[in-house]
Design a protein around this nucleic acid. Structure first.
Length: 296
DNA sequence: AAATCGACCAACCGCAAGTCT
DNA sequence: GAGACTTGCGGTTGGTCGATT
């Protein structure tokens, strides 16, 4: 059937398809994706094949491996520098793809937005609830609820899930209020559980912390702005807000990111046998099992 | 035990841009 | 130079899984 011949397969890849794709790359290199379909090897589009290779089959990928603390830091820093240039950011993270970085960031943003939303909701209710703990520790040194001596932050706000412990004494509660840069906003810990217990308060109209009894909920605009912060809280939690010292040094890109706009490089027929130029992007031992391309 | 929720991930889509004919 | 083709990128969606209620 003609229609069947033209049918393009979508959805999850099977192991057999992966094998076909890997064999193609072994033979021809990571290019000519469209020929995979035109040769009838797979009923996948070239785009789909390329994506599968880049995101899953490429050697030395850190598949199924969570972002380390260092990687998180790099992503956060580079995102603030480059914006949503995931492919470029990924070049600084060996074994990570642009999709990985994008997913990580997206997930993080969602989490952040949700936390902020919850927090502002909590704030708006607790400010009118005398029983609520959120108002109980607002006055310096008074009615400060006992807090845990340490807490284990969740992944939220760019914190890592590893054993990062932040300890506070009860006297520090108020002073440890976290500042959001440039927004005149403080982020205060509720009894030190990250996430839903965070309380946001707007202190922009006052310079007297001790008088801050009420929690002012954010406007939707403010919340949106917060959700889009390039550098949401990371430094504020792990480092002093006024610190000019970088918390870490950025690594060099794994692949040199091209300053010019990204572009694929079509390989001419002549170049095709030019010492496998494309292989330079891969570890030397990657194609140990590859049949060498015969020279003409 | 079932339902719900959130996190994570794979894959698709549309668009932009380089290359080829 | 123009149009077709190919590739790469960023945004988005939908599925799966584990934790929580």
């Amino acid at each position: 059937m003609e229609a069947k011949k033209e049918e393009i397969k979508k959805g999850p890849w099977k192991a057999e398809e992966d094998e076909v794709l890997i064999n193609h790359v072994k033979r021809y290199g990571p290019r000519d994706w469209s020929s995979i379909r035109s040769k009838g090897l797979l009923q996948r589009t070239g785009k789909s094949c390329r994506l599968r290779w880049v995101n899953k089959l490429r050697p030395n990928l850190k598949n199924g491996c969570k972002f380390s603390a260092d990687e998180e830091r790099v992503v956060i820093e580079l995102q603030s520098e480059f914006g949503n240039k995931w492919a470029r950011i990924a070049t600084y993270l060996p074994g990570r793809t642009d999709n990985d970085v994008k997913n990580f960031w997206s997930s993080r943003q969602k989490r952040l937005a949700r936390i902020l939303h919850n927090s502002s909701s909590d704030a708006s209710t607790s400010s009118f609830n005398p029983k609520s703990s959120s108002s109980s520790h607002r006055s310096k040194g008074k009615n400060v609820k006992p807090i845990r001596q340490s807490c284990k932050p969740t992944q939220g706000f760019g914190l890592v899930e590893e054993e990062v412990t932040v300890s506070y004494s009860s006297d520090q509660v108020h002073d440890e209020a976290l500042r959001l840069p440039d927004l005149g906003i403080k982020l205060e810990h509720q009894p030190f559980t990250f996430g839903t217990d965070l309380v946001l308060a707007d202190f922009s109209d006052s310079h007297d912390d001790a008088n801050q009894q009420a929690i002012i909920p954010f406007s939707p605009e403010s919340r949106e702005l917060l959700a889009r912060l390039d550098d949401p809280f990371y430094y504020d939690i792990l480092g002093p807000a006024d610190s000019s010292e970088p918390l870490f040094a950025l690594p060099q890109p794994f692949f040199e990111p091209s300053p010019a706009p990204r572009r694929c490089r079509h390989v001419s027929k002549d170049e095709e046998h030019d010492d496998d130029v494309f292989l330079h992007d891969f570890p030397a031992d990657m194609f140990d099992q590859v049949d060498p391309i015969r020279s003409p």
